[in-house]
Amino acid sequence: MEKVILEDRFTTHQKITFLLYIGAPFIIGIVTMLKTNLTSIGFLVLLLFIAIYTFLVSVAFLKRGFVKIDSQLYRGSFVRGRLFFKTKIDISRSPKVSVLKFKKNQKFSWFSMAKPDLATDFNAFEINILNERHTKREAILSLKNKNNIERTINFLTSNFDLKSEVYSPNFN
């Protein structure tokens, strides 16, 4: 299994929102249960809450990248360098790979009352697989860090029968 781990799955803002809104009830439940005298069923429920919260924390800190398993390409999510889950990417009809740059923004959910349009702008670098004439493209991953593009293209072109090209559709 060859892999390339590229960047965090979620932004810091998304991690905080995820852990605050979804994780807070579990933390409250755990603290409340620790303050009471627990029976054996209470301990099982406490262990279940701790396991669920641990799972939520590990999901919040996922990193994403690509994995090659048995000559197949997968988009993978990693926790501490270990593959957490994967999604197969069919590259049989897409012999080309290209990177497109987009200007994107993300709104902040916490500041909606004070400044409803508060957002951050960033560049997104979308990795696409293309057909021979570039008329069909499929985005397989979007990256925020420009430094990860070269590593990604090197991994895809050296491990698979993909050729890196500049996106230039030919509809003739």
Rank of each mutant, 00 (worst) to 15 (best):
K163W: 06
T17L: 15
T36P: 09
F160T: 01
V99C: 06
L48C: 04
R9S: 11
K35A: 15
Y74I: 00
R82H: 00
D8V: 06
Y167G: 00
P25Y: 04
A60E: 02
I91W: 03
Y53H: 15
V79P: 00
T87N: 09
P116R: 07
F43V: 13
V57C: 08
Y167I: 05
K15S: 01
Q14D: 13
A119L: 05
P25L: 08
F49G: 04
S71G: 08
V59W: 13
D121F: 15
I149S: 01
L19H: 03
S164R: 06
I16M: 11
F55C: 11
I5S: 00
G29Y: 04
F102R: 13
N154W: 04
K146F: 07
K15C: 02
V166M: 15
N128P: 02
S92C: 08
K144C: 04
K15G: 03
E150N: 15
S164H: 10
I5P: 00
H13S: 15
L44H: 10
L56N: 04
S164L: 10
V99E: 05
A114M: 14
V59P: 06
L19F: 02
Y53W: 15
F10A: 03
R93C: 10
N37G: 14
T87I: 11
S92D: 13
K96T: 02
R133K: 14
V31Q: 10
I140R: 03
L141K: 06
R80M: 11
I129Y: 04
V57N: 03
K88P: 05
S158K: 14
R93T: 08
